[in-house]
Structures are given as C-alpha cells and as structure tokens.
C-alpha cells in the first residue's frame, strides 16, 4: 500500500501541511472558509521543530497496527490493504491508543472536548483521493509511495 513518508532534508518547517490537513478534514469547500467558520480546524499531521530541524509526522499506518490491537472498543480498524481508520461513533475517548502509538500520531479531538480521538486516514474519507499534505507540500518533503511489502 502507498503510505506517506517524510524527507526531513526538504522540510522547511512552514507548517502549510497542517493547514491543508485541517482544511481537508473540515468538511468545508475552501481553505478560507475552513479557517473562518471552523476556527479550531484541527490537523491530523504535526510538524515538529527543534532549531534547524523540521519534519512532519502523521500516522505511519504501521504494518503491525499496535493502536488497532490496543483499542478497547474496536473503533480503530485496519483494512486488507493496511489503511488504519477510526469510527468515531464507536470511540469513547479512553485514550488507550494515545498511550500506545509510538509516534504520537493519535490526535485528541479538542473540538468536542476530547470525547473522541482522530487520526490521519490518508484522505480516503474526505474529498481528497490523494493526501492533501502531499499535494500541497511546496518542497516535496512529504511523499506518497509504496516502500514496502504489504500485509
């Protein structure tokens, strides 16, 4: 399966991907609307900065899916291709997945006071097709490729 990979050398630390991610998952049809109407638009990708170092992190769609195995309700699941998604209807916000994800990629949904969590779903559930962070990265620091054997 194609996954998102990060090329740290190329990341400028501009955080644009965070904005596009928040927009892509906001349900609005333009980025200006997303940020005007939806003040707390929330990205599922996070750019870490430490001095000269910058890189984006979002769900790796791990092959062994530790978060899915840990989820106490079955809200997290993985499809036959390896895509890890969340059914927020079944999430009770226990944060067992936050405890488990070794990359810190489960995002607590502050918009509903943390009652559920959310995560990168590679833009398959929104009007994306291809991950927006990849499409909009201005320096090719995030790529969407198949680099491994599938599950």
């Amino acid at each position: 399966m194609k996954r998102v990979y990060v090329n740290e050398n190329r990341c400028l630390g501009c955080h644009l991907c965070e904005y596009w991610c928040a927009f892509a998952n906001s349900g609005e049809d333009s980025i200006t609307k997303a940020f005007k109407l939806n003040k707390e638009a929330m990205p599922r990708i996070n750019v870490e900065d430490d001095g000269e170092i910058h890189f984006a992190v979002q769900c790796r769609h791990c092959n062994d899916t530790p978060c899915v195995k840990a989820c106490i309700t079955g809200a997290l699941s993985v499809d036959t291709e390896g895509l890890v998604t969340i059914d927020t209807e079944r999430c009770v916000g226990c944060y067992t997945c936050v405890l488990t994800c070794p990359y810190g990629c489960i995002v607590i949904d502050e918009k509903n006071g943390g009652k559920t969590v959310t995560k990168c779903e590679l833009c398959v559930k929104n009007a994306g097709g291809e991950p927006w962070c990849v499409k909009e990265c201005i320096n090719g620091a995030i790529v969407f490729e198949d680099r491994g054997v599938s599950i």
């Binding site: 990979y5 990060v6 992190v57 790796r60 092959n63 990359y103």
Partner: peptide, 10 residues
C-alpha cells in the same frame, strides 16, 4: 532513529 521511524516501511 528518526529516519527509521519516518522514512522506512514498518
């Protein structure tokens, strides 16, 4: 270590 986590299949 970070490249292993972010740039390699796992």
């Amino acid at each position: 270590r970070r490249d292993k986590k972010l740039a390699e299949f796992h």
